[in-house]
Design a protein around this nucleic acid. Structure first.
Lengths: 209, 209
DNA sequence: CTGTTTACGATACATGGGTAGCGTAAAGGA
DNA sequence: TCCTTTACGCTACCCATGTATCGTAAACAG
């Protein structure tokens, strides 16, 4: 038989039950409220069975969030201003979905930043970090292609580095969510794109001081 | 006597010894290697004495880092491009100082992101988060003033929102450090400022598509 | 049917953050 | 000189992550 599937097979229903229980706890009580023991109890499973699938709590949390996020792709309407605003807003929406976790009515205060904990998880474990960077690179490649098409149409500067522009857009969103706590919404996404495209420098009086 | 200083006074030498021991561990072995018990042992102090000063390990780590960072202020030479590059590079330098912590020769791999853990600490504890946002607001106010002076000199667009520009600059740095892992240096800071000031849109063929 | 391989459950355990309680030390006030 | 107040050290303890071990169950190969 195939080397990969010898012995007693894994019970896939356990994965489902565990992920569902973990998602409930994570979204309702935040990262600190995600207890391995309670997840195991709610899923009706031994704690050791959990650790057979996910080596740490961080890995489980990443799996839960990856399971929740639905892949949304990039649209290319030809209007780079609109496309970048859509792209930026999609990132903001995904961040907000996680940001609201753990504090629906402000009653369970001790459990805010799922986003921050996921970022920290990526820093704590090499494999999680690599996976995160890999996903980032995959999504980013599409956005880079979008930008390059607009650049070839003459809508963007010829010497523009697409990665720098994307760093500015996505970076500002993460910065607000993680550092300043300011809200990120459609309006901010559009403002961000407008500032990035049009530039902060004054064109009339002193275009390049 | 004053209500605030009744009873046996705190031994300030304990604070120094603890902060020094904690800084050594944090910088050498990262956040995971910062063990309260070991800090107490190295400082020759009981564990409970540590908790009398810092309620959690997160609070101690924040105190250590705050103790390490030297306040660097903002320079205003009149050349906004240069001033913003300097400002951006200063943030990058501070981030890099922490980023290199825990992996000098790649021997102690398990302890990378001090920055990520500090951000997570701000999300875990309301008081740390508030302090961080307060410090951010204080430094940001100076940068906003710098931008507004340049705007009044006609170097920047009249309708520019200074906060958005700063989000883009600082955000791109944090994004690279926390998410993509790409390096941040003087060259990147200048590239960032150039892109932000000049704008991504092409001025000649299709200035506002 | 028997042996091998892997999954599951259960228990015990190591580790580290954090708390509680108690005896003692150091300061000022009366 | 007491008395009160706070700091310190010490011990014991709670809780959660994560590991080790062992008996048993489910699959397949021969």
């Amino acid at each position: 038989m195939n080397q990969a599937q010898r012995g007693r097979p894994r019970d896939t229903r356990i994965d489902e039950r565990v992920l569902r229980a973990a998602a409930t706890l994570l979204l309702r009580h935040g990262y600190a409220g995600l207890s391995i023991e309670e997840v195991a109890e709610r899923a009706g499973v031994a704690k050791t069975t959990l650790y057979r699938r996910w080596p740490t709590k961080d890995h489980l949390a990443v799996a839960v969030v990856a399971h929740l996020q639905d892949e949304d792709d990039i649209t290319d309407t030809g209007d780079i201003r609109r496309d970048l605003s859509d792209y930026t807003e999609k990132i903001a929406t995904a961040l907000n979905r996680l940001r609201s976790a753990g504090r629906p009515a402000g009653q369970d205060n001790r459990s805010a930043g799922v986003v921050a904990e996921l970022v920290a998880a990526g820093a704590r474990h090499d494999d999680i970090g690599r996976m995160g960077r890999h996903n980032y690179a995959r999504r980013n490649a599409l956005a880079v292609a979008l930008i390059e098409r607009a650049r070839e149409r003459g809508q963007l500067r010829a010497d523009l580095d697409p990665l720098v522009l994307l760093d500015q857009l996505a970076g500002a969103l993460y910065y607000r969510v993680l550092i300043t706590g300011a809200p990120v919404d459609r309006h901010y996404a559009e403002q961000l794109v407008a500032t990035a495209l049009d530039g902060a420098a004054n064109r009339k009086e002193a275009p390049r001081p």
